[in-house]
Design a protein around this nucleic acid. Structure first.
Length: 494
RNA sequence: GUCCCCUUCGUCUAGAGGCCUAGGACAACUCCCUUUCACGGAGUAGACACGAGUUCGAAUCUCGUAGGGGACGCCA
């Protein structure tokens, strides 16, 4: 390990929500930085003006913040104002830096103006492909003297600036996760640094920024592997020190294709919406391509930071397994202290219009009995619905139960029993005792006993077990609900 | 088409030449707990892509084949 300070970055392009693959890349960088007491930097790669938006940038930042991956340098998560000594951290604000660099290469003869049109490029490409060669561009402007090109440009001809790929030699990249990767000499052709609009291009900005921001290690997705060759050439041209690279395997869908929208949820935001915990998503995604030396499956952020090392990064692609995510989520969720769990569940209940008792002790009791049925926060909605502090509507599927001749007396006996009870909440054993006494008193048993009581409590004969639910419903509510059902019966079948 | 990367149970993985009759986790299945479910507990089944080589010995090293993925953009 070199003794220069560890500085890593996550560099998303703001085109939509943060993808889970991006989240994993960000996480690994974050874990690596934290493990080594280094810095984690956020840089926004927004040089594609057509696709980058301000909203997307805010979305990505929100998602990162939700995951709890805090950066030390980059746009502030709320004000978006750059923080840190190596800014600006948005590439669209660094244009003059790129321009200077391009001019230097131009002056040194390491780059040239290219006046080729899209059509000309397309023709060349097709021809190369036809000949079984990599579709590279051979620009006729490659050897124009700078002065001549400038003059031509002056006359209003649009030019891109291309890097002049010189001496063909193999480049060897000592990759942190793949070992030595050898790029053959002619893998890339003269690539564009500056678009004809003057806007720089990814590979160019990325290399310059990583160097200027003193990035020590770059962990990024495998699809950048071939870009690395271009960036290495740029580093060489500028005499900048090359950071260490580690190329991460990509994440696949269940059909072993690159994970995309058609596989379902792929953005962190969707997982947040669906009731997944950030700690669970981090944990799950970390295990897609990395393993704990202790073979631990459930890890907190702390534990991941402590145990992280790139040596345990896996180079083969991993399939995103929704089922395992659910398990990881459920496990984290059930381990949360009641107070914290409630804080997370509450927005979902509120959104569903449910009103719950304020008493923290009640909340803890409710959570403890219901959380074993939850895999995500959203599950709480249906689980807590019967506990809503409002009368429950009598559901359609209760019709048959209500038509039984003994139903009315069972519900009346139930109501009377509840009324006689003298504390606010029944215990499970109280409930069972009451149920038994109704059975003996009326001689009604089986479904003719349970189902009417269930309807009296939750308005439907189906649902969570009563002995779990009843102790969570206060006496007043139980009576109100029983009365509500009795009134409903009075009105007769409708 | 060319180049690069990858290949252990269905899935995520452990595995750095003998500790491997290949270990763990999710999922599946069975049983136990439970008057249903869930939680929990105990089990069962399930993999080194193929073929050559190197070696006393190969999941581990080398080469080939096949399959998969990625890249070849004035996208990132």
């Amino acid at each position: 390990m070199s003794n220069s300070p560890v500085r890593v970055r996550f560099a998303p392009s703001p085109t939509g929500y943060l993808h889970v693959g991006g989240a994993r890349t960000a996480l690994y960088n974050y874990l690596f930085a934290k493990h080594h007491g280094g810095e984690f930097i956020l840089r926004i790669e927004d040089t594609d003006q057509a696709r980058s938006t301000e909203e997307s940038m805010q979305m990505q930042i929100n998602d990162l913040a939700w995951l709890g991956l805090k950066w030390q340098e980059g746009p502030d998560s709320i004000s978006l104002i750059d923080v840190g000594p190596h800014g600006p951290y948005r590439q669209s604000l660094r244009l003059s830096i790129y321009k200077e660099h391009a001019e230097k290469l131009l002056a040194d003869g390491l780059a040239y103006h290219c006046f080729m049109t899209d059509d000309e490029i397309e023709v060349q490409r097709k021809e190369s492909l036809r000949l079984g060669k990599p579709p590279q561009v051979n620009s006729p402007y490659r050897d124009w003297p700078l002065a001549k090109a400038l003059e031509h440009k002056e006359k209003g001809h649009k030019a891109s600036v291309r890097f002049k790929v010189r001496t063909k030699k193999d480049h060897v990249l000592p990759d942190l996760v793949r070992g030595e990767v050898t790029f053959p000499s002619d893998m890339v052709g003269d690539f564009v640094m500056l678009r004809s609009s003057g806007m720089p291009v990814y590979n160019f900005c990325c290399a310059i920024d990583d160097a200027l921001m003193k990035i020590s290690h770059v962990f990024r997705a495998e699809e950048h592997l071939s870009n690395t060759l271009r960036q290495m050439m740029l580093y060489e041209a500028f005499h900048y020190e090359l950071p260490k690279f580690g190329h991460l395997s990509i994440i696949l869908g269940s059909d072993r294709q690159k994970l995309s929208k058609r596989h379902g949820a792929t953005s962190c935001f969707e997982y947040a919406q669906n009731g997944y915990l950030p700690e669970a998503l981090n944990n799950f995604v970390a295990l897609l391509g990395w393993s704990s030396p202790e073979a631990q499956e459930i890890l907190s952020m702390e534990e991941m930071i402590n145990q992280f090392s790139y040596e345990r990064l896996n180079s083969s692609p991993a399939v995103f397994d929704e089922q395992k995510l659910s398990w990881v989520n459920a496990t984290h969720l059930r381990a949360l202290p009641a107070e914290e769990l409630w804080r997370r569940v509450e927005p979902f209940l509120t959104e569903a219009g449910l009103v719950m008792p304020k008493d923290p002790a009640w909340r803890e009791r409710a959570l403890n009995t219901l959380k074993t049925s939850m895999t995500n926060l959203k599950d709480a909605v249906e689980l807590f619905r019967p506990l809503n502090e409002a009368p429950v509507p009598v559901k359609e599927d209760a019709r048959e139960v209500l038509s039984w001749p003994t139903t009315k007396i069972v519900i009346e006996a139930w109501k009377t029993g509840v009324e006689k009870f003298n504390s606010e909440y029944m215990e499970e054993s109280d409930f069972l005792k009451l149920q038994d006494s109704i059975k003996e008193g009326l001689g009604v048993k089986g479904k003719h006993l349970f189902q009417p009581v269930r309807v009296a409590v939750i308005g439907t004969p189906q649902g969570t077990e009563l002995k779990m639910l009843v102790p969570l419903l206060n006496k007043k509510l139980l009576i109100a609900r029983a009365e509500h059902v009795l009134q409903h019966m009075e009105k007769g079948p409708t």
